[in-house]
């Protein structure tokens, strides 16, 4: 069972938030990794090749949108689900139209973590389908 569960990378500079997500995905049996900055996350992602990334937008240094574009260069089919603390945040269109970016933007605090996890699982499957086609 553990072998089939994908790995997810949690990119959030807020330790409590990052940890709560790490714990949640971990409890569901996912492989989890955390990163506090986009730069760190890029390094980690290249090491572990995650199936999906939960991306915070406002980060110290490189922001979430730049991270998505940067990650795309090496891992174009990694599913990205944006979860931001700025309510009503809409990422720029050039980010939103990326197939690896999930259409729904989650706002912190995420009241239903199950929805987030389910969205991530679905999106990873879609991204994998695309990857096979490509």
């Amino acid at each position: 069972m553990t072998a089939v569960m994908p790995t997810v990378l949690i990119l959030d500079d807020d330790d409590a938030v990052r940890e709560s997500l790490l714990y949640y995905f971990e409890d569901l049996g996912w492989g989890v990794h955390g990163a506090g900055t986009a730069e760190e996350a890029l390094v980690v992602a290249r090491q572990i090749n995650p199936a999906g990334v939960v991306v915070d937008i406002r980060l110290p240094g490189m922001d979430g949108c730049s991270f998505i574009l940067e990650l795309e260069k090496t891992h174009p089919h990694v599913a990205c689900v944006i979860c931001t603390g700025s309510p009503e945040y809409q990422p720029p269109d050039y980010v939103l139209i990326r197939p690896q970016v999930f259409a729904k933007i989650f706002s912190k605090p995420v009241s239903d973590l199950g929805e987030l996890a389910e969205s991530m699982r679905q999106h990873i499957m879609n991204c994998n389908v695309k990857a096979i086609h490509d």
């Binding site: 807020d14 330790d15 409590a16 938030v17 940890e19 709560s20 997500l21 714990y23 949640y24 409890d27 603390g85 700025s86 309510p87 706002s107 912190k108 605090p109 995420v110 009241s111 973590l113």
Partner: peptide, 15 residues
């Protein structure tokens, strides 16, 4: 700034 701590609280409480 408020939502992040709230997220820390609520999400952690959920976990």
């Amino acid at each position: 700034e408020i939502n992040n701590p709230l997220a820390g609280m609520i999400q952690t409480a959920n976990v």
